[in-house]
Computed example of a mutant assay.
Amino acid sequence: MKSIHIFSIFVVVVLAQLFVPAQMILDQENTIARGTAYKFRTQPVDPSDPFKGKYIYLNYDISFAATNDTTWVTNAPIYITFKTDSLGFAMVKDVSKDDPKAGDYLKTKVTWYNRFDNSVGFSFPFNEFYMNETKAYDAELAHAQAQRDSLPNNTYALVYVLKGKAVLDNVFINDIPIADYVEKE
């Protein structure tokens, strides 16, 4: 009788360990399948973390927005709605403390508030793009070179946004995925 209880607990633990990662994967796949794709201008650097591996850390041109609300607090939730500019890149449409419930929005946290120019800063949760370890350094160099290129807007991250969540799909240089661009060079 005791072994049946132990076996039952074992089965529940195994199912939980399978369910949690499966749910995380399904959430990301749903965001990619049903979300809106936005291009975010990037400025990466190439850090290395012994526990995470090689990745490109991405900085974005969008990091703050003007606001009429003067009560923003660091680390408070912020909802950002997006639109695209004439070149197809993401722009902040509005920021709010309240869940917009509709449209393309992302929930993140306030990083700072500047009361002198009424702007609120935020960071995106999709700032790390993981790559094959052998390509990450070359990708950083290629991106730095592309930033110096005379062509504007040639480096960006493709991010899918759906109901407060976002998934970083890929990073592009001259409309070519960065891993393919590095192999081509």
Score class of each variant (00 low, 15 high):
99 D>W: 00
99 D>Y: 02
99 D>Q: 04
99 D>S: 13
100 P>S: 07
100 P>L: 06
100 P>Q: 08
100 P>G: 09
101 K>S: 11
102 A>V: 15
102 A>I: 15
103 G>R: 01
103 G>M: 02
105 Y>F: 15
105 Y>A: 08
106 L>P: 00
107 K>S: 15
107 K>R: 15
107 K>N: 15
108 T>M: 10
108 T>S: 13
109 K>P: 03
109 K>C: 07
110 V>H: 01
110 V>L: 14
111 T>D: 09
111 T>N: 04
111 T>R: 04
112 W>F: 15
112 W>A: 15
112 W>C: 09
112 W>S: 13
113 Y>I: 11
114 N>T: 06
114 N>E: 08
114 N>S: 15
115 R>S: 11
116 F>Q: 14
117 D>Q: 08
118 N>Q: 09
119 S>P: 03
119 S>R: 11
120 V>S: 05
120 V>M: 03
122 F>D: 01
123 S>M: 09
123 S>D: 13
123 S>R: 07
123 S>C: 06
124 F>I: 11
125 P>H: 11
125 P>K: 13
125 P>C: 04
125 P>I: 08
125 P>E: 10
126 F>C: 03
126 F>R: 00
127 N>V: 07
127 N>C: 05
127 N>K: 08
127 N>S: 12
128 E>Q: 14
128 E>S: 11
128 E>G: 10
128 E>N: 13
129 F>R: 00
130 Y>C: 10
131 M>N: 04
131 M>R: 02
131 M>V: 10
132 N>Y: 06
132 N>C: 11
133 E>K: 11
133 E>V: 05
133 E>S: 08
134 T>H: 12
134 T>V: 10
134 T>D: 14
134 T>L: 09
135 K>S: 07
135 K>P: 04
136 A>L: 04
136 A>R: 01
136 A>F: 03
136 A>P: 02
137 Y>I: 12
137 Y>S: 12
137 Y>E: 15
137 Y>Q: 10
138 D>R: 04
138 D>C: 04
138 D>I: 05
138 D>H: 04
138 D>N: 09
139 A>V: 03
139 A>R: 00
139 A>N: 04
139 A>K: 00
141 L>P: 07
142 A>P: 01
143 H>I: 09
143 H>C: 13
143 H>Y: 13
143 H>N: 12
143 H>R: 05
143 H>Q: 08
143 H>M: 14
144 A>W: 05
144 A>Q: 11
145 Q>W: 06
146 A>E: 12
146 A>F: 02
146 A>H: 03
146 A>K: 08
147 Q>R: 11
147 Q>I: 07
147 Q>K: 12
147 Q>S: 10
147 Q>M: 15
148 R>P: 03
148 R>N: 06
148 R>I: 05
148 R>A: 08
149 D>P: 08
149 D>M: 11
149 D>N: 15
150 S>T: 09
150 S>A: 10
151 L>D: 12
151 L>M: 10
153 N>R: 06
153 N>M: 10
153 N>A: 13
154 N>R: 09
155 T>I: 10
155 T>Q: 13
155 T>A: 08
155 T>P: 07
155 T>L: 11
156 Y>H: 04
157 A>C: 06
157 A>G: 13
159 V>K: 00
160 Y>R: 01
160 Y>H: 05
160 Y>I: 05
161 V>M: 02
161 V>H: 00
162 L>C: 04
162 L>K: 03
163 K>Y: 03
163 K>T: 12
